[in-house]
Computed example of a mutant assay.
Amino acid sequence: MKRVLHLMRHFWLDAGDVERTLGAGTLDRIEARIHASERRHLGEICVCVEARLPTSYLWRHLRQHMPMEQVVHERALTLFGKLGVWDTELNNGVLIYLQLAEHRIEIVDDRGLARHVPDAEWEKTLAGMSARFREGRYEDGLTRAVDAVTAALERHFPADGNERPPRENQLPDRPVVH
Rank of each mutant, 00 (worst) to 15 (best):
D109S: 12
V146G: 00
S37G: 08
C48Q: 04
G81W: 09
T150I: 02
F133R: 00
R132M: 15
S56D: 09
P118W: 12
Q64F: 14
V117D: 02
E44H: 07
I96Y: 00
L79T: 00
D87T: 05
E89S: 13
D147M: 02
N91G: 02
M66T: 14
V149N: 03
A148F: 06
E38A: 03
P158I: 07
A152P: 01
E123T: 11
C46Y: 04
G112N: 09
A24M: 11
F157Q: 04
P166R: 15
R164P: 03
T21S: 11
L98P: 03
M66E: 13
R20Y: 13
E50W: 03
V4L: 15
A32Y: 08
T150R: 02
H35F: 12
G23A: 12
H65E: 15
Y138G: 05
V85N: 01
Y97A: 04
Y97E: 00
P54I: 13
L53E: 02
T21R: 01
I30W: 03
L62A: 14
D173N: 13
H178P: 14
R115T: 12
P118I: 11
G128K: 06
F80S: 00
R39M: 14
D17I: 09
P67Y: 07
L77K: 08
G23M: 15
A151N: 08
V94R: 02
M66Y: 03
W12V: 15
V176M: 05
N162T: 15
D17Y: 09
E168G: 10
T88I: 10
L90V: 10
W86S: 05
H116K: 13
T78Y: 10
Q99Y: 06
V94H: 00
R137N: 13
R33E: 10
Q64Y: 12
A76V: 01
H103W: 14
G81I: 04
D110Q: 06
T78Q: 13
L98A: 03
L62F: 11
W122Y: 10
T78L: 13
D17P: 08
W12G: 12
T21V: 15
V177N: 07
N92L: 10
D87M: 07
E135W: 13
L27K: 07
V149H: 03
L171H: 04
A15L: 05
Q170R: 11
R33I: 06
